[in-house]
Amino acid sequence: MYNYIIYRPEELAADPSFRNWKLKGLEEDTHFWNEWVSLHPEKQSDIDKATLLLEAVFETFDQISEADARYEVRQIAAQLSESQMTQDSSHRLVSFSNNLYKLAAVVLLLLLSAGAFLTWKNGQLKPTHADYMAHTEAFEGLLTEIVNTTTTDTTLLFSDSSRVILRAGSRISFQALFSGTNREVFLEGEAEFEVQKNPEKPFLVYSGDLITRVLGTRFRVKQSADGGEIEVEVKTGQVSVSRQGAGSEEGKKYPREIILKPNQQVVYRIKENQFLRGLSETPQPLPEANLQGLMNFKGLPIALVFERLQQAYGIEILYDKDLMKNCFLTASFTDEPLLEKMDLITRTIDATFAEVDGQLVVNSRGCP
């Protein structure tokens, strides 16, 4: 199962299951998406935009392979993000695969005429470097700055023994000795942090419009190249993510903070002032989890099965305990991804599941 909560309209349109629902009305896909939309009403706008895109190009989609369809739609979106596009219509031409020119032309025309609902650089999005400079200018002369100009990751060790992996093309500023009441770090780009615990001195990462607060954990922060999105993903521990100025009159219109637990992530869309919380792309077992001992089930009640999965991955699984009290499972798993495990388990007991707001929700009619 894919983490559709963070999909953009163009990614939804490129998804085979979504297209089967909208273009072919296949029963299984229709059932899944109707249920998914009811659980995620905040995604209705993206669903509508993806549908509009498909309606304009459905004939062409039927003439190309799944791989080509997914590739071309994403290429179109990526090329729309290029800063070379100008007000002169003669410069708006984008090169596409010749055999799929019809698809590209129709989609491009649709996006331009509809006001281009895909996110690309425009005057309403803050450049990432301007955000970074706004954060750091008040500390002029007090910060150490590291810029990763290489093509590989760079690992840094802070004075408190916390560690950061700075991705290629990213930059970070910080006080060498963390002398204030907080350990403050200013990030442009992407980095993964492993923070030493210190309840008396929280660790704060400023990136774009977001502040990520932690006491001790491992997490990742990524700011998109155009500054339009900021993504925070937690590997271990727990963090809170908030919009800067959340206490102001303007900030009161938005969530004060989002709490993230292991294997959860949030994508903050700056233009829409929207937080989208979901599971990590590939949830990983917690460091202390013993998968070999936890993943062998012999006639085990489903409640204990879900309890073991929660222990292993730190992800909450919601289900009706009374309704499923007669459900049992005999199975053995090794290194299968979590969502693959959940798919096999729910199929075995004639149930389904969905990811909702960073949790797994199981739907079942019960077991005889």
Rank of each mutant, 00 (worst) to 15 (best):
M133W: 04
M133E: 13
M133H: 05
M133Y: 07
A134T: 13
A134P: 00
H135A: 14
T136L: 12
T136K: 06
T136Y: 09
T136V: 15
T136C: 11
E137T: 10
E137W: 03
E137N: 07
E137F: 05
A138S: 06
A138P: 00
A138Q: 10
F139I: 04
F139E: 12
F139N: 07
F139W: 12
E140R: 07
G141N: 07
L142D: 12
L142C: 09
L142H: 07
L143M: 02
L143C: 01
T144R: 13
T144N: 10
E145V: 02
E145I: 02
E145P: 00
E145D: 01
I146G: 01
I146L: 08
I146F: 11
V147M: 06
V147P: 01
N148T: 01
N148G: 00
T149F: 03
T149A: 09
T150C: 02
T150P: 05
T151A: 11
T151D: 12
T151K: 08
T152G: 06
T152F: 11
T152K: 10
T152C: 06
T152N: 10
D153H: 07
T154I: 13
T154K: 07
T154L: 12
T154V: 13
T154Y: 08
T155N: 09
L156G: 00
L157E: 15
L157D: 13
L157F: 11
F158T: 08
F158Q: 07
F158W: 04
F158P: 01
S159Q: 11
S159K: 11
S159I: 15
S159A: 14
S159L: 10
D160M: 04
D160W: 04
D160F: 03
S161Q: 13
S161F: 08
S162G: 10
S162C: 13
S162P: 11
R163S: 15
R163V: 15
R163G: 03
R163A: 14
V164C: 05
V164W: 03
V164N: 04
I165V: 15
I165G: 04
I165R: 08
I165Y: 07
I165P: 00
L166A: 01
L166Q: 01
R167I: 01
A168S: 14
G169Y: 09
S170P: 01
S170L: 12
S170E: 02
S170Y: 01
R171D: 00
R171G: 00
R171K: 15
R171I: 00
